[in-house]
Structures are given as C-alpha cells and as structure tokens.
C-alpha cells in the first residue's frame, strides 16, 4: 500500500523540552484512503496537522510526505508541496473581504497564473458546483452566507488546485446534527470524486470517525494509542479507548 505521509518518532515541545505536546508519534497515512484522527481536546491533533503541512518544525523525529523528508525540503519546495494539499479549517477561514468566487479564485490566481482569467474562473465555478454552491451566491461576501455554505466554499477553495492530500480540521465542531451530516457527506462525496486523493480528518466525533474513516487513529497525551480499522477499534482491550467509544456512542 502506498503511503502519503510517514511519521517517525515525532516529538514537539514548546517549552524547551520540559513537556511534549507530541511525544513520539509513529504513524503512516495511506494514500487514497480516509484516515480519521481522533482524540480529546489538547491531545495534539492540530499540532500534528501543522507539522504535516510543514508549518511547524518538529523538536525531533521525521515526517515524510510523498516519500521525501520535510526537513530536507527548501522553502520553495515546501510551498510547492503545500499547493498539493488542501485544508478545510474549522470555521472555513474564508477571506472576509473577498466574495465567494474571489475566495475560490485566490489560490488559482496565486499559483496558476499560466492559465487565462477565463479558465481560472471556469475552474473556480466548477469547484463551487461540485461542493453544492449555486452561482447566485458567487458575489456574496462570506458574512452573507450560512455556516454550512461557508464550509462548502472553504472546501471548494481547498480543492481549487486539485490537491493530493485533503486535510479537514474539525470540520463539524459546533455545527448542528443536520449540518454535521451534510459536512460528513460532503467529505465522503469529495473523496469519491477525487480519485487518488488522501483525506485526513481531525475530529472528536467518534460516530463520524466510524462512518467516514477507512482507518482511525486515536491520539492521547501526544502519543498514538491505536491505529486501525473500525472493527479493530470496537474489539480493542484498551481501557481508555473503550471508555472513549462508550461515551461517544452514548452521546450520539
């Protein structure tokens, strides 16, 4: 199986080694699959995502993306790598002074200047269409559309450069059950539509992890507790994971 991301003994400390947010992470994220990264708040999920994106440097350890170590890449190579990754942020992180269409056009205007303006506009409109946005919203500002639509636009922007890896940072946190289901379906549909793309979804929603994930990774105190399929999770003897599953199932 081809691996999109390989992480070896990753450690990250923000206080000079007194405590570690990530404390020896060993993890592989297979290509063309949906991997769910779950865990309680403050377990280092978002910090791990920033390391994969090359936005943070590890205190020690290695991260390989598409087979090449991030520490061996120059700044230009890292920028080129980030263009192959798309991120849907928790609150979509749309640029609030740009319209819906301008938000989706932005990465294309930055990195695909070889294309004509008309072609870029065509791509942006197509990406909005596949995420379920009507053209009537093109000229609206992010503040003028609903939270669910903002997520759709955020996803369309993440897809603009046809990334090989899609990262979702707690995409359903704070949403009502209907919107949560909509976003979950959007992730599944997007994954099916983009053949060969690797998806990494950060969440603390256990049911979503079971529903969406080909693989589930559970983090606790900066370490990987378990990486496996849904069945492996349900049959685990680990006391902590069993509690997490029981609480998650009861809540849902």
């Amino acid at each position: 199986m081809e691996m999109a991301v390989e992480i070896q003994d990753l450690k990250k400390s923000f206080d000079g080694g007194k405590s570690f947010v990530l404390n020896g992470i060993d993890l592989v994220i297979p290509a063309d699959k949906i991997t769910m990264l779950i865990g309680f708040s403050g377990t280092g999920k978002s910090v791990l995502m920033k390391h994969i994106l090359g936005l943070m440097k590890p205190t020690s350890g290695n991260i390989k993306v598409f087979g090449k170590n991030l520490s061996q890449r120059s700044e230009q190579e890292l920028i080129a790598l980030r263009c192959q990754m798309g991120v849907l942020f928790q609150h979509a992180a749309l640029f609030d002074d740009m319209s819906v269409i301008e938000n989706v056009l932005f990465p294309l205007s930055e990195h695909r200047r070889d294309l004509s303006k008309a072609r870029r506009l065509e791509i942006a409109r197509h990406k909005l269409k596949v995420t379920g946005m009507d053209r009537e919203h093109d000229q609206k500002l992010p503040a003028e559309i609903s939270g669910g639509m903002q997520k759709r636009v955020g996803l369309a922007r993440a897809l603009a450069l046809d990334p090989k890896i899609l990262l979702y940072d707690e995409p359903t946190t704070g949403l009502d059950p209907i919107l949560t289901e909509m976003v979950d379906n959007l992730i599944l549909d997007t994954h099916k539509l983009h053949k060969g793309a690797t998806s990494l979804v950060i969440s603390h929603d256990l049911m979503a992890a079971f529903r969406l994930g080909d693989y589930i990774v559970m983090l606790d105190k900066g370490k990987v507790l378990l990486r496996g399929t849904k069945e492996e999770f349900l049959n685990t003897d680990n006391e902590f994971i069993r509690k997490f599953i029981d609480k998650g199932i009861r809540r849902s």
Partner: peptide, 17 residues
Amino acid sequence: GTMRVSEQIDALEVMGV
C-alpha cells in the same frame, strides 16, 4: 488581527502564500 484569530493567515500559509 482578525485574520489571525479567524485562521485566515493560517489559510494563506497553507495555500503557499
């Protein structure tokens, strides 16, 4: 500052800007 707290600056960075 608003762009920072609403993750818009993070979004710029991950878009290679």
